[in-house]
């Protein structure tokens, strides 16, 4: 899932300062699952904003709505009557959703209430961690299911750097060393000799380095 994190309250307050009526928009997909911008988070932020503005003597009308998906036109088009006379949309969807809603309602300001952070998994209840950078050229077969591009702070392809200690990354003791994880997998699978394979230079043109990416499936197009 795409993992996001709500922006600090003061930053959000500043974003909506000029408005008296906004639509606070959530998304039922990833941001719901990672508890950053689903119905619950929308309700909490709306309540906080109303109270804050009431206290400041500048009441604000915050309409709450959660779209099934903010990244799919069939849901985004349904938003028109809901926007009504809102002066701006404050979105708790991921960066994709924020942009996509903006593309459909060009007269509206669509403001981000979350920072979109990474593609990851829920390691446990309330803990999310990054797993994929979307480099467009998967090598998980070679590293037995642990991505060196994402999980090594330096995206090293041929082994750990000299900063790996006690299973941790030199960047933070909170972060496991990606290459330790890979070596552990090699050992578990009795394939440590696989480490000796030299990985050639990566073709980054399939990654963001090749420019914004697009995927088309002709058979599905209408």
């Amino acid at each position: 899932m795409i993992v996001a994190n709500r922006k600090p309250f003061e930053e959000i307050v500043e974003l909506v300062k000029a408005y008296k009526s906004i639509l606070l928009l959530g998304c039922n997909e990833c941001v719901t699952v990672c508890a950053a911008g689903g119905a619950k988070e929308v309700a909490v932020l709306a309540s906080e904003l109303r109270m804050h503005r009431e206290k400041e003597g500048q009441p604000i009308e915050v309409k709450e709505h959660v779209l099934e998906r903010n990244c799919d036109p069939e849901y985004v088009v349904s938003l028109a009557p809901i926007i009504g006379d809102a002066e701006a949309i404050l979105s708790m969807a991921c960066g994709c959703g924020i942009q996509f809603v903006g593309e459909h309602y060009r007269q509206m300001r669509v403001l981000p209430a979350v920072n979109t952070t990474f593609d990851g998994v829920a390691e446990e209840q309330g803990v999310w961690a990054e797993r994929c950078l979307g480099c467009g050229n998967c090598i998980l077969d070679k590293t037995l299911g642990v991505c060196p591009v994402t999980r090594c702070a330096k995206s090293l392809f041929n082994g750990p750097c000299g900063g790996s200690h006690g299973g941790k990354c030199e960047v933070s003791d909170e972060t496991p060393c990606g290459w330790q994880l890979i070596v552990d997998r090699y050992k578990e699978m009795n394939m440590l000799d696989k480490y000796m394979e030299i990985q050639p230079l990566k073709n980054w043109s399939t990654s963001r380095d090749g420019g914004p990416r697009k995927r088309v499936r002709e058979d599905l197009k209408l």
């Binding site: 750990p160 000299g162 006690g166």
Partner: peptide, 14 residues
Amino acid sequence: FADPFEIRAMRLAK
């Protein structure tokens, strides 16, 4: 002296 120790000689071989 870095971890994982068991691959440090292999890493040099590489």
